[in-house]
Design a protein around this nucleic acid. Sequence first.
DNA 1: CAGGGAGTATGATGGGTGTCAAGCCGGGCG
DNA 2: CGCCCGGCTTGACACCCATCATACTCCCTG
Lengths: 231, 231
Amino acid sequence: MELPLAQDDLCVARVPLFRGLTRTEQEHVAALARPTRITRGEALYIPGADVSQLMVVHTGRLKISRVGVDGREQVVRVLEPGDFVGESAFLTGARPDHQAVALEDGSLCVFRHGDVAALVREHPSIGLHMLQELSRRLEETEARLASVVSLDVSARLADYLLGLPARRSADGLTVRLPLAKKDIASLLGTTPESLSRQLRRLAEAGLVSEHGPGLVTIADVDGLLALSGDD
Amino acid sequence: MELPLAQDDLCVARVPLFRGLTRTEQEHVAALARPTRITRGEALYIPGADVSQLMVVHTGRLKISRVGVDGREQVVRVLEPGDFVGESAFLTGARPDHQAVALEDGSLCVFRHGDVAALVREHPSIGLHMLQELSRRLEETEARLASVVSLDVSARLADYLLGLPARRSADGLTVRLPLAKKDIASLLGTTPESLSRQLRRLAEAGLVSEHGPGLVTIADVDGLLALSGDD
DNA sequence: CAGGGAGTATGATGGGTGTCAAGCCGGGCG
DNA sequence: CGCCCGGCTTGACACCCATCATACTCCCTG
């Protein structure tokens, strides 16, 4: 019984949702969590499913996406460790119009909605953290909407690259693309073809260069900044 | 002292945020509210302002919009009575990158952030209602993002018209456009010119017709549905 | 190891729509 | 009352970008 307990503990401790709780409170929360393994490509739920749990990502990443009437996929968001899904069913009772797929093997902490409701009432700070997270997501989505409407693909791509975690390297900053290019294209509201073309343009202009699988080094940060929404 | 109290009371009672509270609790909340009048065209706050209050719309409507680097306005959302703004500053401490302008004369109930925090801790249901509202907004914004990316202007316009509150009339359904057409265009992620053209197309196709100021009657609901995202 | 599917790159092409420009109309303010 | 500004419409034009098609590479699986 030692191992699963330790797992729960980790899950609860790392998550912003439960930050600020005392050790004992965290243990109480952990007792309600059901740890679950996920394998790459696995669908946690599909559109219209009855999601009755709040799922907190422990390790691995999830891709949330819609599928349009024509079957085309639209990436909504990518969940990293500490992020959660399933709150909207919990809050509004609505069925999701999107799906969640594991991008890689990983693990989740799953809570039943009823337990979450009790936790929120017992520990208002959990509700406040959820509010903060939803507010952050809303702002991010509004920003993406604005950029799709007002910026062309190259500007959105420049924005995206500049927003990635970067590492100093010999000839500038090096970033690792966290997603398949087709998914990045979808996130940016464009197609893989357009993304490929624009990335080549940036390379031809000497602003960036690609080496290897998903490794991009930014040679001219100011050049990219000028292309992007500026600010 | 009777009149202002009655105003506060109304404000609190009508708002989903404070639904489910007992009479005494509502009175307690009302005591913290500061009623404020707004006049058409007045800016409640501008980008970068220090918003230290949660504002609940009592009467009238507000337009939330961003202004791009080129000065072009992008409508984010329209607030109706019962809706609120200012929660993001309260939750994350961030300055807004958007502005709020009154679409018409009206009134607000304003709460100081500190009071809101206390209220949420005291009455968890308030926090839950805020969560529900943010979750709803997030879903709406994600839906708009998806539609801008995957639907053309005519489909978005059809969607929009079908989503408006309608009244049965002689030759179909009649809706009243709740916004200036330029604002509707912005909301749909397009330009006034394109909106005007597409609306004319719908009229030429016999699907809709315009009479008077912002009055549109939908002659062929199924025709519009076929144009829109279907479902 | 060979097959196959998915992801990606590149080219050609057409269409939707943003942009610029001009004109119209209505309402608000002086 | 009449000016004038802002919203709206219509037209012409260009261009970005989605689409279709093809080909290449890599990884995974049988």
